[in-house]
Design a protein around this nucleic acid. Sequence first.
DNA 1: GAGCACTGC
Length: 791
Amino acid sequence: MGMATKNGNQKLHKKFGDEEVTLPKSEPQDAPVETHDQGTTQKKKKRKRKGKGNAELIDPSTQNTATEVVTGPKSNGTSKPQLNVIPQPESGSKPTETQPKSKKQKISTKKIQKPTVKTVTFFSDDEEERDTRGRGADTPEGLHARARELLEVRKTLPVYKAKDEVMSHLSKNKVTILIGETGSGKSTQIPQFLMPINKKGIAVTQPRRVAAINLASRVSEEAGSKLGDKVGYSVRFDNKSHHYTKLKYLTDGMLLREIMMDGDLAQYSTVIIDEAHERTVLTDLLMGFLKQLLAKRDDLKVIIMSATLDAERFSKFYDGAEILFVEGRMYKVDRLYIDQPSEDIVDSTIKAIVQVNNGELEGDILVFLPGQEEIDKCVNLLERIAPELPKEAPYIVPLPLYASLPPAEQAKVFVPLKARKRKVILATNIAETSVTVPGVRYVIDSGLRKVKVWRHQLGLSTLLTAPVSKASATQRAGRAGREREGKAFRLYTENDYTKLPLQTEPEISRSNVTSPVLMLKRAGVDDILNWPWLENPGQDSLVSALTQLYHLKALDDNGKITELGIQMAILPLEPQLSAILLTAHKSGCLSAAVDIVSCLSVDNLVLNPQAENRDEVNEKRSNLCVLGTKYGDLLMVKELLDFYTQFENSQERKQWCKELALSYRGFKNVIKVRNQIRQYMISLTKDKHLFDEDDEKNNTLDIPSVLKAFLSGYVSNTAIGMPDRSYRTTTSGQLISIHPSSLVFGKKVDAIMYNDYVYTTKGYARNVSVIELSWLQEVGAHVLAPKESVN
DNA sequence: GAGCACTGC
């Protein structure tokens, strides 16, 4: 059938009405699903059950039962079942959906109430909104009353019930791997259990700012103290902790900075790495540092908290550390597969949405799609077909959700709808971990995601659409079972599912590791290749990072970190950008360089205009930015920032941003970043007055100096204009095109420098500036072989 | 003449 998305809505609707729709196949359930067989299910064939039947489909962890914690042999003395190793998945079965426990381990099967863990939304990342809540209850009496209230809730958490066993284990071991699923309460309770017995502080890391802030605020309430006193947090731009704070939630990046300042982490007696299974570059690095530190410090305890999958790997990494398992509290989620996947993901998504809407009980639908393009297409189609769908079914309201969407648009997914309406949230991976949408009962999973892959041989990155891992598919499905039983409809076959990789490839093995390597050097690691990497990025990748750092003069001929390198590591920037600032300082154009670098550190600042007013916006930008038009995009953001700061009030700023398709929120972040960088530069140079004469300096902007400073960081990101108007890179001679979003697009110049080299339909240079050929020799002779670079 | 997931200091 392969219905094209270009079809009109009438036709589309008709096709859904007839019996061509065969997806997704649904398994008969024990639970009442009266409405399920409306309309489109006649053609369904019963799926063949394997072996143990229906139960095998269901992730045991999502059963609504509470289970006792099971610990390793050392916590013996009871007749409770034990577990210290995660069993290998049976071959041919569904490994990621098999939990390391047997039926007999369940000690209780009573139904649980609504999960009590506070829903974490991304809103509170904005301190303006966060500070307005929770006021007035700050009296000691009020805090204690609230804590007593919360204690009753805490006692129902699986991990609370196992407190004694967990504690007895933790007191005997230096390293523990603790597996706890969603709803177990591990992130809030375990650190609190430890507070009375820790002499020094407890650090708990999180991959995301919002999570650190929300956990700290919850736990502080539970502990009956004011946020920032006994329990606090520390994230970039926001610190609510004191030297006497006993329990500190921080982002993993923050703990890494602390390691660079104090390699022994002397202020902590326990470090907990939470969400270790996400395998971000930073958590991976932390785990390596901790391994080294454990050999040095006898009084340090380390707890690695994770979802199930990486437990054995973590255990091996920490010399066979024991694994504790805590049952989560999620509701049952049935997984259903398609039998004939379509080539067109938008097509099969729309069909699945319509069928779920027609056939399933009330509850919102969360759809996982790879990117903005697919999401926007689906939203448009759904808006058109919604009025044509059967009147018996709820009216569907499509809502997009992705990171570059303005905050007000994102907020719509949290607003409840009136009766007879059903939210269909079409989201990227943002909804897999970062944003939790309430009310979701059905998940539709395309099985796809976008992944950025760094190719160090070419010095470029590509953004690919790729299948998710089993772990990711399980996580996505779990989003349907947070409030009650749910269903996950997978837009791929069960056979395809079995072929998916077990886990997502760790980020570090597909990333540019220049910055991690500089951090290691700063922390005193000499032998980068043989450092205890949880995942070694590979020799090629490491050598390319070391070479890059050498070119940036962060490392000397012996591979030792230089004074410059130490300063670069301190700045909260990529090494290239740090190098640029230090060069700019020498050449007297620091202020302008800081402005530009701040803009470059903020994502989605200069937005893609909508298609209908694209030409108009582009023209406005180029008329406004005289220097940008002549010298390129670095000068453009400098000009834009100057305009932005000249406005009197935020209303004018907002309006101006809107007209030029710029992000107001982005500029607010630029100002924060700029302040932070200025502070760092002041402390590095010990010159308090470094930025005092800012206004005068703007009047005498030395453009060649600024561009040469940037060239010092981006020597290898340069290309030469050819007679046929194409450009070839100075490093490998590859063909490269100026991205049409650049102000330099369509111009013929001698040479260009760019910040990003991205391969999509072809190799594109993004964020392009005009440079002179002579500068390449002047600034980049030590990197570029003369014969290759200019001919 | 493109169109890009997510996160962190």
